[in-house]
Write a protein that binds this DNA or RNA. Structure first.
Lengths: 128, 128
DNA sequence: GGGGTGAGAGTAACAGTTACCGTTAATTTA
DNA sequence: TAAATTAACGGTAACTGTTACTCTCACCCC
């Protein structure tokens, strides 16, 4: 049987913060926001719950583009754009190429479960 | 004028190690290999040169899929497959989708310079 | 209410990476 | 080719993001 997991106040707050933001925040940013709602929350708790939520598929961890992980409250696969100047992450509104996994599986013989794609360049504000 | 940059024995060794391997090693693995050729090389020197070579476009830094960076001596863009069991990285021999950057640029308005794609799943050895 | 236990707070430890500083050696100039 | 210049070196300490530890708390079922 699956391990029991409780929905604590802290975990709920962390999940809601991620679901209600369009940015792709770091653990530290989540911690700062969570402190406003649960003043004595611990940074360790934030990290623990981010990992728990990631393992249960409720959020996505984005660990590329910089030295720290960012988190995304939308668990559906989608692509991202990383601005090389301001280091912000943006969602890219193009459809996920569903057939790609099977194509790579047929080419390589590996069992392909999913893929990720990121685009790099300059965002609108940083273009000039 | 561009800053002068020297081709030292250490830098040369690091670049050759990366160009002559098919794996996608960590800085530490490169360090171990380099020590065989330059016994008193320092880990700091390995990191410094990996960053220099990455900045000059001679190698690629792959900073996703685990807690440490891996390096790839082939600077041409290509896709990678990450085995979620044995944590090895493999090259994927499908052509890079060149038109994608332009398509995303037209969709988003961002200036797209390049993209990366990684596939996740199980490699041949880990499938059974 | 009492016993069991998953999760919390607080903090120490850890890993990968970077920065510092005195020294060495690659390159330039003569 | 020898001297001068200075980027890069080796060795090490520090830094950063993350995880682990320990003790305590709060929830749940009877």
């Amino acid at each position: 049987m699956a391990k029991a997991t409780r929905m604590t106040k802290q975990k709920k707050v962390i999940l809601e913060i991620l679901q209600n933001t369009n940015c792709h925040p770091s653990a530290d940013w989540v911690y700062e926001q969570a402190k406003k709602l649960v003043p004595d929350i611990s940074l360790g708790t934030v990290y623990r719950n981010l990992n728990v939520l990631r393992d249960s598929g409720e959020i996505i961890e984005l660990n590329y583009g910089s030295t720290y992980s960012r988190y995304d409250g939308k668990p559906q696969n989608h692509y991202h754009f990383y601005c090389e100047k301001c280091t912000q992450l943006f969602d890219v509104a193009i459809p996920v190429y569903q057939g790609l996994d099977k194509m790579v599986q047929d080419t390589t013989g590996y069992e392909v479960k999913h893929h990720r794609m990121e685009f790099y360049g300059l965002c609108n504000q940083c273009r000039e």
